[in-house]
Structures are given as C-alpha cells and as structure tokens.
Nucleic acid binder design. Sequence first.
DNA 1: CACCTAAGCGGACCGTGGTCCAGTTCCCCC
DNA 2: GGGGGAACTGGACCACGGTCCGCTTAGGTG
Lengths: 230, 230
Amino acid sequence: MNGSPSYTIGTPSCAAPVGSGVIPESRRELSLLPVGEPGPQLRADAARNRARLLEAASCMVAEQGAANLTMDAVAAAANVGKGTLFRRFGDRTGLLLALLDHRERQLQAAFLTGPPPLGPEAPAGERLRAFGPAVIRHEHTHDDLYLAARADVTRNYTLAPHRLRLTHVTLLLREAGAGGDTELKAQVLLSYLDPMLVNHLLTRRGMSLERLEAGWYDLVEGLAPGARTA
Amino acid sequence: MNGSPSYTIGTPSCAAPVGSGVIPESRRELSLLPVGEPGPQLRADAARNRARLLEAASCMVAEQGAANLTMDAVAAAANVGKGTLFRRFGDRTGLLLALLDHRERQLQAAFLTGPPPLGPEAPAGERLRAFGPAVIRHEHTHDDLYLAARADVTRNYTLAPHRLRLTHVTLLLREAGAGGDTELKAQVLLSYLDPMLVNHLLTRRGMSLERLEAGWYDLVEGLAPGARTA
DNA sequence: CACCTAAGCGGACCGTGGTCCAGTTCCCCC
DNA sequence: GGGGGAACTGGACCACGGTCCGCTTAGGTG
C-alpha cells in the first residue's frame, strides 16, 4: 500500500510448468502442424528470454488467475523489456495461447496416439464418443486459461488446435459411417465443446460433468446413428 | 490532416435507426423480459442524452464499422461527457448491445408472434426448422455489430436474448416430441447459430447460406427425429 | 581474431476503455 | 413557488495493451 506503483513479483518460487520447446511468435498460429511447431530456432538470448517470460507468466497465472495477468507485470517479473514480450508472443492472447500450448499437446497426444478408447486402436465410433468427455474434462481443469485466451473471439476457429480437432472429428465421423455434411456436423460437435459453453453450463448453470457427457453421447448418436457399432 | 487531435462528426446526417424506447443501463441485461424492458423511466435530460448517444453511435457504426467505434468519439459526437456515456451503458459492450437491441426485437417479434412458419400458428416441428435460417440470416445482415458486441465473451450466455431463444427452442423441442435432455439439445442448436460461428463459416470458410441452412435441418432431424411431422 | 550485419532488445510513448468525484440539474413535496 | 436531496453530468485521471525506433549483441565470415 505504499507509493510504489507497480507490484513486483521478484523471482517467484514456483517451478516452470512449461516445456522449453521453442514455440514461434504471433502469426505462426496458422500452422497446420499439431500445435505450433518450433520453426526457425531462436537466438540463444531470445530463447532464454522466452523461457523466462513463460515461467514468469505461468507463475503469475497460478498465483492470481489468468484474468489478472498484465503484460507489464509479466515483462517486469521476467526482467525483460515490454517490447521483447510483444515481439515474442504478438499480443496478450498469444502469450496465453503459448501457456496453453503444452497442455494442449497432452490432449492431442491422447487422441492421436494414445490408448483406446481415445487412440487409434479403438473403432471410430468409440473414439468419437470418447473424444467429447476427454475434451470437456481437459477444458474444465484449465478453464481460467481457456477463458482468458478466448477473449479474442475472432481467432478461435483459425487456431491450429481447433483445426486439428476439426479434421480429427470429421475423419472419425466419416469412418463411423455418418452421411451428409460431415464437416458441418464436426463443427456442431466442436461447438458443443466450446470452453465458454462448457464453463457456462458447469459453473453458471450448475450442470454436472456426467450430464454434459451424456449430452455428448446423445449428440453423437443423433449425428452419426449407430456409430458405436460401426 | 491538421493538428486537431480528435475527429469531430458534427451533427451527422444519417437518421437515427434506433427507437427511442428507454433501455436501461448495464446490469439490466439480466432481465427475463423479451429483451430488456424500460424499467424505471429516466429523467428527461438523461433520456435526451441517451437518445443523442445512440444516434451518434449508430451513425458512426454505419460510417466506419462497429470495430472502429471508440467511446471517446461517441461521447464527443453526441456533445456529452464520457462519464455520462459509461453511466448509461456500463461499458462498450453495453452500448453495442443497446444498438443491437431494436434489431433483436424485430427478430423476436417474428418468432414469437409473427406469421407461420416462424410464428405460433405453425406446428412446432416447422417452427423449429424455420428458426435456424431466420436467425442465421438475421445475424448475417448485422454481423459486424454482433461480432463487436461478442468481444465480451463472458456475457453471451446470460444475455436476455440468448435466454429467450433458449427457452423458445427448448419448448419447441418438447412440443415436437423430442426426448432426452431437451435443454442441452437446445443449447446445441443455439451453439450452431452463434454469430461467430456463422460468420466464420460464411466468410472465412466460404460456405453458402444454403449449406448452413441444410446443416440446420440435418441437426434438427438428428436431435428431434420426425419433428417435421409432429 | 576483428569485423559486419541482421536479429534481438527495451523502455518511452500513445490511444482507448473505464473510474471518480465535485458541481449541477431535475423533480418531488410542502 | 421554493426548498431539499437524489440522480445525473462531465472531464480530469488512471491502467493496460500495443507500437516504435535507436541501441546492443550474437554469431557467421574472411
């Protein structure tokens, strides 16, 4: 409560929960790769600063919630100039997305290469059914970050993770024998998994996870009848 | 290009396309009424200023797009203090929503009391089918405003228009004989009509209105089989 | 090892959304 | 008609996101 204007988080104690894999800046989101692959590797100092920024940001999110994260504070806590922060991540949303990235990768690994019923060894219908609950629970555990990143609404549908989910679901639908406009059906299914919607239904409306999951199974059955047995 | 800092829109020529019906400020969005009813009427000068602000804002949106609307400019153009503007509408999103309000009312009138197949004289299945295209086209014609207002993601689901649509669709679903979790099904249907999604599919993905409408019919058929004939 | 250049860096600066509070205006009640 | 108090007004003020541009440094080249 003294006169000093900005709060300092001097070398916070929490460990950096973010891999040091090099993720590129702003516009690389358009990549088609699973999430956003390294690209041209950064100069040594740039990489170091990037890691520091991510660590600081991650720590501050854990402490005060994603909504209260300010760019100034992150830059200050990482002992790095604001310009550097913006150069690396483009904007606030970019930073949040970078924080989300490694968690996103875990989910992607689960449904691309993991064990059944999510992974490729299960029949398409089963995988489709399992996909919804997996995403719902994933988003539920990271919801403040998803919500904060979602603030930039215009970016949602062009993001790599979304596009990956879209093709994944579209393929599963076809494989499961769903007819009609499978791409649009996939969009519907993904809309049901929108972090905002999930959060609203769980938190604001007080619905249970089980109810949401049952809703997903209903939806799958409606859009791809008999998929379970395909 | 001279030194004067802020652009002045001195008494713009376009007519005010917004009814002078008194709409309350920020928090009244929680109302359950069709949109957001008058409530306690404003003091004479407040009402006058409100109208001036709406007229100025509406005009500026028409001229330079909703995305470029700044609160300072609106207040200046209406010859009103910034504090007044914020007191009346709460925040930028509130102002945008107020602009959207009367257009929203038109749509609501169409599906609550209008002629078939949207209005109450048609069978539920028909109304449900007709609802989607009506909303899609409505949103498409006002999309920049919807997109700008949508920037505040956290508010979407608690807004009166959304809640009205939700109960409307839920009732139609039940009436049409859809079983299961009708409320959740209604949420799915409404998700499909999200302005962001509609805009993305139409603009970015280049889908046609017809395709989106066909997708809606598919969806209705999947969630309420045989509704058409109910 | 010295140089050169492109990449990286940082913090002053700006515009905008949003807050605050002292002064003013309206309207109800006497 | 006049007095009292609540509601409204307005613009100075603040915080935050984002930009800009001159300086620094990494790291390749002869």
